[in-house]
Computed example of a mutant assay.
Amino acid sequence: MRNFQVMNYSFENLSEKNLSFQQVFDRIAQFMKKDPKGNFRLMVGTDSQVHSTYTRFVTGIVIQREGKGAWACIRKVTIPRQMKNLHEKISYETSLTEEVVSMFTEERKDQLINIVLPHIYKGAAFTIEGHIDIGSQRRNKTRFLVREMMSRIESMGLEPKIKPEAFVASAYANRYTK
């Protein structure tokens, strides 16, 4: 008999715990409705940290109104072993990002787009980005994964971002993997 881990679909931030995805979506929509003329970036990214007996993965969701603040939350997943193979670890990070992004169904994306739609001629915008904790510089040992992981993110209709632009994965989520 196999022992499968039940995936944790609860999200949290510094002020709230045990948020369902619907509650996360509602917070994002509320944030956007405060200033529907804003330039919004919805960003999702995952980072991980290998510990002595487990590997912790943290996926961050950030809605940013450029120049006017952000709302964010995280989702933690723990794998009960050390995941040391770099390709496996980065691929799993990307899968967790894809999984959270897939919760933003076409209907949900349309709801968010419809918040800014009446204001696009006044500078309002909405983009969705997938942040991947990899880099293309020569010194970066993940550079061999850039094309594969960016293709996966693009295939979901997202704008892929890698280091140094992938701050949701490399900075925000990273802070909670320790």
Results as ranks from 00 to 15, higher is better:
31 F>P: 04
119 H>L: 04
169 A>R: 00
46 T>A: 01
86 L>S: 15
46 T>W: 01
65 R>E: 15
4 F>H: 08
15 S>L: 02
115 I>V: 09
59 T>N: 12
123 G>R: 09
105 T>W: 06
145 L>N: 13
115 I>G: 06
126 F>E: 15
117 L>G: 02
7 M>N: 11
16 E>H: 04
112 L>V: 07
143 R>Q: 09
88 E>K: 12
130 G>N: 04
131 H>M: 13
86 L>F: 08
109 K>R: 15
111 Q>P: 04
91 S>K: 06
5 Q>D: 03
145 L>S: 14
22 Q>T: 05
12 E>K: 07
118 P>R: 11
96 L>V: 00
9 Y>G: 02
79 I>S: 13
1 M>N: 04
37 K>W: 02
87 H>K: 15
154 E>L: 11
100 V>D: 03
75 R>N: 14
53 T>C: 05
11 F>T: 03
123 G>M: 07
107 E>I: 09
110 D>N: 13
25 F>W: 00
49 Q>K: 14
110 D>V: 05
151 S>G: 15
119 H>M: 03
36 P>M: 01
138 R>W: 12
112 L>F: 08
134 I>A: 15
110 D>E: 14
145 L>P: 12
46 T>S: 00
88 E>C: 08
66 E>K: 14
57 F>H: 04
25 F>E: 00
28 I>H: 01
117 L>C: 01
50 V>P: 10
80 P>R: 14
12 E>T: 05
49 Q>E: 10
54 Y>G: 06
9 Y>W: 13
117 L>K: 07
147 R>F: 12
178 K>G: 10
102 S>K: 00
48 S>L: 12
173 A>G: 06
49 Q>L: 12
175 R>P: 00
27 R>P: 05
116 V>D: 03
86 L>H: 13
155 S>L: 12
15 S>I: 07
73 C>S: 08
56 R>M: 13
105 T>M: 01
115 I>L: 06
103 M>V: 00
54 Y>W: 04
113 I>H: 04
139 R>Y: 12
12 E>S: 08
71 W>Q: 03
31 F>H: 09
171 A>I: 03
41 R>Y: 05
80 P>M: 15
7 M>F: 12
127 T>R: 06
112 L>I: 12
30 Q>W: 02
88 E>M: 11
61 I>D: 10
20 S>E: 04
42 L>Q: 06
1 M>C: 07
168 V>C: 03
31 F>T: 10
135 G>D: 11
51 H>N: 10
153 I>M: 15
165 E>W: 06
176 Y>E: 06
111 Q>N: 10
23 Q>L: 02
